[in-house]
Design a protein around this nucleic acid. Structure first.
Length: 569
RNA sequence: CGGAGUGUGGCGCAGCCUGGUAGCGUGUCUGACUUCUGUUCAGAAGGUCGGGGGUUCGAAUCCCUCCACACCGACCA
């Protein structure tokens, strides 16, 4: 539609012999000012040095000469805006379009034929899955789905630190505290390993002798010379990875085959590349191999890539990872999602990589997000433990279950619903804000069925679906009139593809979240003021189609956020 | 000190790219209906958009500067 309006404006300008193409068309903030609005008169008035209001009137008259039937009227307003009002026919057709396209409604082909790799989550074996991982996962999954909706083939990648001091600390902890009992579930064993890590980590910081012991273990983890260390390592790595899989399943993420990358593999690959480029890209300094980013861009730091003990740092592993990704999958774009604390270091690493592989430079994109903070101040989970991503997720599901106590349905169904709704509460809390800032997580508000929350969006959708189910026994034969007036609901629905496109351009999921909340709210207004399944309602057929279109839009939109709609709530 | 973020009604946020005179949710106050899932609907009050300066007919939006908060800044990731 935007294109059509642009075209008729250009024609009108041509007829008025005005040469200008640098105008914008957008949706006014308020529906009172039409469905689309353009600043063309104000832009032209500047260069022509005429009164924008008069020029707007002139253009308006020209536009009215051959108006397309999707537009019912054109008006001038304010300092020189031209507002377009879409016609009944347009909205009726757009509802039909949604019903036709179904799960494809809102998709576009901007990235058709492109392969995009998204790396996200990145938890570390032997350590708990924490809140940051939860955030990165929610964002990465949503970004993956947004690019997928824009026509790209998406590859989901995960990068995990299976070597390094944290592993040695955990192994020391396990050696000290013993193996867990066989009766434990995978999740419980992983939790136990997390506790061992904390124990080892604390001792590392407070006891010089133990610190030395752990450093010895760290070396053994790398060189694989100690049978006992190897045994604990293999066991612990497998358990934690399996526990992560359970969480991914709950969150709705499935990483692509062969796209689990590990630091232990990336380290030697990166190290080789770094050593080959000493003197060219990297320099020796104080016994270490470093990269002076500042030589290429004043803003970049100097970073150590191989430390003075000859061990590769995270930067070097990142080089190995990036090169491996491109050689293995050759994506048109490789996106990495992490917290902002990695922003500066990643710039340095990417600069170093582009000096070696110039063709990767424009194909690397790093997306960063803020931290999660708690509305209530101090963070402690319901059971009084340190909050991990996993405990947060389960607390959220428990809170939903509590709210559903009065519902008349079986325990099994309640449990299933509280999973889907609990995940949604958390995901929405993360995805509703722009990525740049920290998010304030309020558990109570996040599971609220009203207002700005994932459950609210789900609940509204469920109610819509419930009407559709009831309507199966409702005869609409004599209720096929098309209503004259256009509801706000219709004015939101047709905008969905534009919102998706915008979210893709910015790579910002919150645009979807904000839109869906407005959409759901407009549905509730409609729902609250219209009785659909009534004999007197001559528009029932159209209304039901409208509700179907609404439901489809919510379904597709929530999918982009990684949220499912349950059958009932 | 340098870099890169963030700052908008009590609280949580959108709008900033592309300038048109501030919107959403929650909370507070008032009213409605109890129906297709009332966890709803209608309405009201509440903001000099962190401070100052500049550009412009017009600035939350662009530029400069200051302040506050959290992040990064050579051998952690």
């Amino acid at each position: 539609m935007m294109e059509k309006i642009q075209k008729i404006i250009q024609e009108a300008l041509k007829n008025l012999s005005i040469d200008e193409s640098n105008f914008s068309i957008e949706h006014p903030d308020d529906f009172k000012n039409g469905d689309y609005s353009t600043n063309v008169a104000m832009v032209c008035a500047k260069s022509l040095k005429t009164n924008p209001k008069e020029l707007a009137e002139k253009i308006k008259l020209e536009l009215e000469k051959n108006l397309i039937n999707e537009i019912s009227k054109v008006e001038t307003a304010g300092p020189g805006f031209i507002n377009f009002y879409l016609s009944r026919e347009f909205f009726t057709e757009s509802v039909g379009e949604v019903l036709n396209k179904k799960e494809n409604w809102g998709k576009n082909q901007i990235l058709s034929g492109k392969k995009i790799m998204v790396e996200y989550t990145d938890p570390n074996p032997f350590k708990p899955f924490h809140i940051g991982h939860l955030m990165t996962n929610a964002i990465g999954e949503s970004i993956s789905r947004i690019v997928e909706f824009s026509g790209a083939k998406t590859v989901r990648a995960n990068y995990q630190g299976d070597v390094g001091p944290h592993v040695a600390k955990a192994i020391y902890g396990i050696m000290k505290m013993g193996l867990p009992s066989d009766g434990m579930s995978i999740g419980e064993k992983a939790h136990y390993i997390g506790k061992c890590y904390t124990e080892g980590s604390n001792l590392y910081d407070t006891d010089e002798n133990i610190k030395k012991e752990i450093e010895v273990i760290n070396k053994k983890v790398y060189d694989k010379t100690d049978g006992e260390v190897n045994k604990i390592y293999d066991w612990g790595r497998a358990i934690t990875l399996e526990a992560f899989e359970e969480i991914y399943k709950l969150l709705g993420t499935k990483f692509s085959d062969g796209c689990y990358f590990f630091e232990s593999i990336m380290a030697p690959i990166g190290e080789k590349i770094v050593r080959e480029n000493v003197g060219k890209v990297f320099t020796e300094s104080d016994g270490a191999i470093v990269f002076h980013g500042g030589e290429y861009d004043k803003k970049l730091h100097t970073r150590v890539f191989i430390n003075s003990q000859g061990l590769p740092t995270y930067e070097t592993k990142e080089i190995g990872l990036t090169v491996t990704k491109f050689e293995k999958e050759n994506p048109d774009l490789s996106i990495v999602v992490t917290a902002t604390e990695q922003a500066e270091y990643m710039k340095v690493v990417q600069k170093a990589i582009s000096l070696i592989h110039g063709d990767y430079e424009s194909r690397m994109n790093h997306i960063t997000h803020g931290m999660m903070r708690f509305a209530s101040g101090k963070m402690s989970s319901r059971k009084g433990n340190v909050i991990t991503g996993e405990s947060l997720l389960h607390d959220s599901m428990d809170m939903v279950l509590e709210k559903m106590k009065e519902r008349e349905m079986g325990d099994e169904e309640k449990n299933k619903i509280s999973e889907v709704v609990g995940v949604s509460a958390l995901k929405y809390s993360i995805l509703k804000s722009s990525l740049g800032s920290d998010i304030i997580y309020d558990p109570l508000k996040s599971v609220s069925f009203e207002g700005d929350s994932g459950p609210y969006l789900q609940y509204t959708s469920v109610r819509a679906n419930s009407i559709l189910n009831k309507a199966k026994d409702f005869n609409t034969d004599d209720k096929k009139d098309i209503p004259e007036e256009v509801t706000e609901l219709e004015k939101y629905i047709y905008q969905f593809p534009e919102v998706v496109e915008h979210a893709y351009e910015k790579l910002e999921p919150h645009h979807i979240a904000t839109y869906l909340t407005e959409l759901a709210s407009s549905f509730n207004t409609f729902y609250g003021n219209t009785q659909i399944l009534k004999e007197e309602n001559k528009n029932a057929l159209y209304h039901l189609n409208l509700i179907k279109a609404f439901y489809q839009t919510m379904k597709n939109g929530l999918w982009l956020l990684g949220i499912e709609i349950p059958e009932r709530m």
